[in-house]
Computed example of a mutant assay.
Amino acid sequence: MASRAIWKGQLRLSLVSIPVEIHSARKSSSRVSFRQIHGPSGKPVRYQKTVQGVGPVESDDIMKGYETDDGEYILLDKDEIDAIKLETKKTLELVQFVDSAEIAPIWFDRPYYVVPSDELAEDAYRVVRDALRQTKKAGLGQLTMRGKEYLCAIRPCGDGLLLETLHYQQDIRDADPLFSGIEDAASDEELLEVATQLIDRKTAPFDASAFEDHYAAALRDLIAAKMKSSKTPRAKASDDGESGGGENVVDLMDALKKSLKQSRSGKTTRRKKAS
C-alpha cells in the first residue's frame, strides 16, 4: 500500500523554500489488533457519544470546551479553532542547528520521513541533507499538523531526511524527585570492573532486525492454534449490522472490505437504504 502524506508544505532554510511531504515512519499494520466482541451475541461492541439526560448526540453538535477554574466551559467552534493562522501550518522553517548528539533521547517523540514533493525540489533537498550530514547537525523548527504545533528536529537518514517530533520542556517531568533518594556514592571497584567487561563483551553494532516482538509472535501463534481448533468460540463477522430505534450503525472499514471483495469477484452490490 502506497504511503499517504500526513503533511504537505515548505521546508525553509533562510530564503530557500523546498516543497516537501511528511510521511509516518512507523507501521501500524505489523501489530496484532483486536476488536471487542459481546460474548453472548457475538456482535462487535460499539461506542456512541452520549450526553447525560439527552442521550446520543450528533457529531455536528459537539463543540470544544475549555474548563476554567470557576467550573465553567468556554465553548469553541471547530471553525474558530481552524481559523487560527499559524505560519507553521504550511511552513517548517529551520531556525536553529545543534549537534545531533546534543538532543537527549528523552526529548524524542515520533519519527517521520521527509521527502521532496517533486523532481524540481530534489536538488535543494539534497543540498540540505548533505549539509546536515557534513556538519553532523540537526535542524530545529516547528510545524502544525493534526491540530497541534510540534517542535521538530530534522537530520539525515540514509538518502533522505528524518523528522522527529520533540517534547516541549513543560511536557517532561522533572526526574529529581524520583532520583533524589539514590545515593551518589562510588560503586564497588571489583563489581564495576566485572560490569564493564560484560558490557564490552556484549557490545556490537546496532541492528534492529536482531530483535523480535516475542509477545506479538506468541499472540499470532495463539490465534493460529485457535483457528485450527473446532472448539474455539466464533462470531460471524458478516453478522455486523444492527437495526433498532430507527438507527443504522455502519462500520465503514467492514463495508469497504466487503465492497472490495465483491468488486474483485465481478459482483455488484446494492446500497442499503437507511431506515
Rank of each mutant, 00 (worst) to 15 (best):
L178R: 02
P40H: 07
I22D: 00
V128A: 01
A216I: 11
G39R: 11
K27V: 14
D77P: 01
A237R: 05
E164C: 02
A225H: 06
Q96G: 04
H23W: 02
V51N: 06
Y125W: 05
T144M: 04
E58Y: 10
A138Q: 02
A25P: 01
S209P: 02
L120C: 05
S14A: 12
I18F: 04
L256G: 08
V45S: 07
E58D: 10
H167M: 11
L75T: 11
I37D: 01
P233E: 08
K137C: 00
D69T: 15
G9R: 01
D82S: 14
L13R: 03
S180N: 07
L219W: 02
C157D: 09
G241L: 14
R155T: 13
P44L: 06
I182D: 03
Y47M: 13
L140A: 07
G266V: 04
K78L: 08
D159C: 02
W107L: 12
V51H: 09
V250N: 06
S3L: 11
E67N: 08
Q48A: 10
Q10K: 15
R4H: 13
Y168V: 09
V51L: 09
S243H: 11
R46I: 15
D159H: 08
Q36M: 08
I199S: 05
I172V: 14
S33M: 09
G160P: 00
Y73W: 10
R271E: 05
L120F: 12
S238F: 05
P56H: 12
A2F: 13
K148F: 10
D207L: 07
A131N: 06
A101K: 08
E190Q: 12
Y215R: 06
R270W: 05
P19A: 06
D109L: 07
D82L: 09
K90M: 07
A5F: 04
A186Y: 06
M1F: 06
Q36T: 12
Q96L: 11
L178E: 03
A225R: 10
V194C: 04
S28P: 00
L151R: 15
T91N: 06
K231V: 07
L191Y: 05
K136S: 06
L161G: 00
T135A: 06
Y215G: 03
S275L: 11
V51K: 08
L15Q: 08
L120H: 13
